[in-house]
Design a protein around this nucleic acid. Structure first.
Length: 230
DNA sequence: ATCCAGGTGC
DNA sequence: GCACCTGGAT
C-alpha cells in the first residue's frame, strides 16, 4: 500500500535526521511572516528580511500595519518579490483587523476549515502557505505539501506525475494516520510539523530538480532503481 | 553565465 | 505554461 510505504519513509527519515524543531522560538506572527517570505526563495534571504523587520521594531502586527508600503518593501527585499509580498503581508493584517479584531488568537480560535478558506482568499496565499500558517502558526493539524514532497511521492511512483496538491496531501495524511492511529490532536500536529521539516531536509539534500539518490535515506524505497527517475 | 530556492497568480 | 525578485551556489 502506498500510504504504508510513505509512512515507513517517514520513520526512516526520523531515524536518520532526528527532530528538526522548526520554528521553535518564534512568535506566531513571525512564523506567518516567514511563511509568506519563503515562497520560492531561499531561507537565507528570509532570515535577513526577518532581521531587518526586527531591527526596525516592525516584526509585529502593529509594526507591519504601521509601515508604509515602500518601507516594508525595502525591509523584505532580501527575500525577493518584495512588491507582491509586501502587499500580501499588508492584506493579511487587514484581514486580521477586519474579521479577527487584529488578533491572531481570534484567528486561531476560528474553525480550521474556515480559517483555511479565509487565508486562501488572500493575495499571495496559495495552498502551501495557507497550510503552513495553519500548522506552524495556528497549531492546527494541516498537512503541508511542497515541491519536495511532490517530487518524492511522484519519483517513488506513489502517485502519478500530475497528482494535485490535495491528492498528495491526502496520501500524506493517510500515511501518518496509519503510522500513528493513537495520536491525540497535539501529537498529530507534532507529526505534521516534523514530517514536513524532514521532507524539506531530505528534499534539499537529495530531491532537487535533479535527483541525487546516492546516500539518500529513501533510496531503498525506490520502486526499481534510481537512474531512470526524472 | 546559469540555476534555483520551504509558490502564487494570470 | 510562464513571469516574478533576490542572492548564493555551480
Amino acid at each position: 500500500m502506498r500510504k504504508a510505504r510513505l509512512g515507513q519513509m517517514y520513520l526512516r527519515l526520523t531515524a536518520v535526521y532526528g527532530p528538526q524543531q522548526w520554528w521553535p522560538a518564534a512568535t506566531s506572527f513571525e512564523v506567518i511572516v516567514g511563511a509568506y517570505l519563503t515562497q520560492n526563495t531561499s531561507w537565507k534571504g528570509v532570515e535577513r528580511s526577518i532581521q531587518n523587520l526586527a531591527a526596525h521594531g516592525s516584526l509585529t502586527i502593529d509594526g507591519v500595519r504601521g509601515l508604509p508600503d515602500e518601507e516594508l518593501r525595502q525591509l523584505i527585499r532580501p527575500s525577493g518579490f518584495m512588491v507582491r509580498k509586501a502587499a500580501a503581508l499588508k492584506a493579511f493584517v487587514t484581514l486580521l483587523d477586519r474579521e479577527y479584531r487584529g488578533s491572531l488568537s481570534q484567528l486561531a480560535a476560528e474553525q480550521p476549515e474556515t480559517a483555511r478558506v479565509k487565508l486562501l482568499a488572500l493575495p499571495g496565499v496559495g495552498p502551501e502557505t495557507a497550510d503552513a500558517i495553519l500548522l506552524y502558526a495556528l497549531g492546527h493539524p494541516a498537512m503541508v505539501v511542497d515541491e519536495y514532497l511532490r517530487r518524492i511521492v511522484t519519483r517513488h511512483r506513489l502517485l502519478p506525475a500530475k497528482a494535485t496538491y490535495s491528492e498528495i496531501q491526502a496520501l500524506a495524511i493517510d500515511a501518518l494516520n496509519e503510522s500513528y492511529p493513537e495520536g491525540d490532536r497535539n501529537a498529530i500536529v507534532q507529526h505534521y510539523n516534523e514530517f514536513h521539516a524532514l521532507v524539506v531536509m531530505v528534499g534539499k539534500t537529495h530531491c532537487g530538480p535533479t535527483p541525487k539518490c546516492d546516500g539518500c535515506p529513501l533510496a531503498e524505497f525506490l520502486p526499481i532503481s534510481g537512474p531512470f527517475l526524472k
